[in-house]
Amino acid sequence: MTTPYQDRPLPGPMLDTSTTPFFEAAKEGRLMIARCTQCRQPHWYPRPLCPYCLGDTAWETASGRGTVYSYSVARRMGPVPYAMAYVRLEEGVTMLTNIVDADLDTIHIDQPVEVTFKPMEDGWMMPMFRPVEGQTDAA
């Protein structure tokens, strides 16, 4: 069985003062995470106040590399199937995302993936992840 990835229309992002820097960076091909300026912990999803200590946070560019922590191919939740996933980033946080540009039936836990960006309405972009070609799973 194969389930080819298909693009699906993505509404524009929900923009406010907390989210706009993230989506401006995504437009430029960068995945941003937030890290606390006080306790130095990164967290996900990004917030202006740190969920460990309520200190102020700052944006930083993530490597965009990670591994699949869990996934599910949603087969009847919309016009086309899509692969919901949690990806563990090298920076040590795990984010909800989609796995794209792959046969969705080959996705598996611990699979190495890298960030890519898929178009939303009005020229905005959403970070998603695709398998890293030729790389074997982490031990």
């Binding site: 993230f22 996900w44 922590y69 869990s70 996934y71 949603a74 939740m77 919901m84 909800l96 939303m120």
Partner: peptide, 20 residues
């Protein structure tokens, strides 16, 4: 903002726990 664009809904969210 970090859930809805990914197709966040009860079935796939419960499924992530089931798969793991």
């Amino acid at each position: 903002p970090w859930e809805r664009p990914y197709g966040w809904a009860p079935a796939p969210m419960y499924a992530l726990a089931a798969m793991r």
